[in-house]
Nucleic acid binder design. Structure first.
Lengths: 198, 198
DNA sequence: CCCCCATGTGAATCCATATTCACATCATAA
DNA sequence: TTATGATGTGAATATGGATTCACATGGGGG
């Protein structure tokens, strides 16, 4: 038999594995059998740790939220100023996508499901929370004078948030030929020109 | 019995209805029973016009491609110059989202499916084609001197393409409180500042 | 005007997954 | 060291959709 594992550790392992699967296949392609296999167990074992599929998705979403919000906080803490924090955040998103942790895919695929309204609502709340956090960086930038004060902070925020998503899609389509890191640097220049105080 | 209908007309009606369903629920939530109901028929009737679910999706995707590409062409034809064409395109995307024809949802949810690699590949090709069309507008803008020539056209294009997507998500989350049309106008200003020749 | 075949129907059937259950086995705490 | 309860297993079972099929029927060409 496979090694037994401490409850909490196993649960986290499963949630993390679930998130990986979600990143590559979206919520549609996500299934219990694959999840079980990815942690080296049998499907029924999943039910020792979760109520069912929907519960797994719910917990994976929690993990996703924590990681994404953590990304923003880390960028804020490590950067000298708000604008630099945004740049750092963008760079890290790019790296994340490059390594397969497809954030946009997850957001998009989870929020599309009309049934399971709870899951959808939760996804949207997570997204809104992410936007709010980025927006606070933008506002701080305005207060510190780095960011023009005559622009709408929400608009600037959504412009920022949208910079990576299409790139992630195109990367799938074009593969290696498309370098996300380079792209990130280029769009950052554009974003900076759009919002920075001269 | 429900009125019988000419083959071609019925097929188109079904494809169009399928696209609507896709827009609101994504490919995960899409099912034959709902499609049948939305055209006032019984599930098995769908099979008189399509090979099966995957075939429906395929044809709906064709329709989607035509409509989206058509949007770009229309904008190009109606506008005086490339930059104006982009602005028009943005405005129309916004309107489309407002009326439920959620373009980004479709793209994202279709491209997430790992299985049915064909469908995924097709979605990505459609997206790439869309990007290419927008990019040609950007390049024309550079040639005509409206757009700065020192920026990478692909980067500018993806920045443009990303402007609407997050807004669409946020709209779902915040509902009426969030006005996409107003948002579109604001991000357009930012985009213009980023790319326009002074 | 009537026939014939494509369209529409409802009742099966199939299938892929999720989920449950009875049983086995390990980890650990007393 | 051993008892015990939680973890893992494999074989059912349940379920929701897709798909098939035998039959009904309406509309357009002869």
């Amino acid at each position: 038999m496979t090694q037994k594992m401490n409850t909490e550790a196993r649960r986290e392992q499963m949630a993390s594995a679930a998130l990986n699967l979600l990143a590559e296949r979206g919520s549609e392609g996500f299934n219990i059998a694959d999840l079980a296999e990815s942690v080296g167990l049998v499907p029924s074992a999943i039910y020792r740790h979760f109520e069912g599929r929907e519960d797994v998705l719910d917990v994976a979403l929690d993990l996703f939220r924590d990681r994404v919000y953590g990304l923003v906080e880390a960028a804020r803490n490590e950067a000298q100023d708000p604008l630099m924090a945004l740049e750092l955040l963008l760079t890290r998103h790019a790296r994340l996508i490059e390594s397969g942790g497809a954030v946009p895919h997850i957001m998009a695929s989870m929020s599309a499901s009309e049934e399971h309204a709870a899951r959808r609502a939760k996804t949207e709340r997570i997204f809104a929370g992410y936007v709010a956090r980025v927006e606070s960086l933008v506002r701080e930038g305005q207060e510190s004078g780095q960011v023009r004060s005559d622009i709408d902070p929400t608009a600037a925020t959504l412009l920022f948030v949208g910079m990576i998503q299409p790139a992630a899609l195109l990367r799938h389509a074009e593969g290696e030929r498309f370098d996300i890191t380079v792209h990130a640097a280029r769009v950052w220049d554009l974003f900076r020109r759009a919002v920075a105080q001269d």
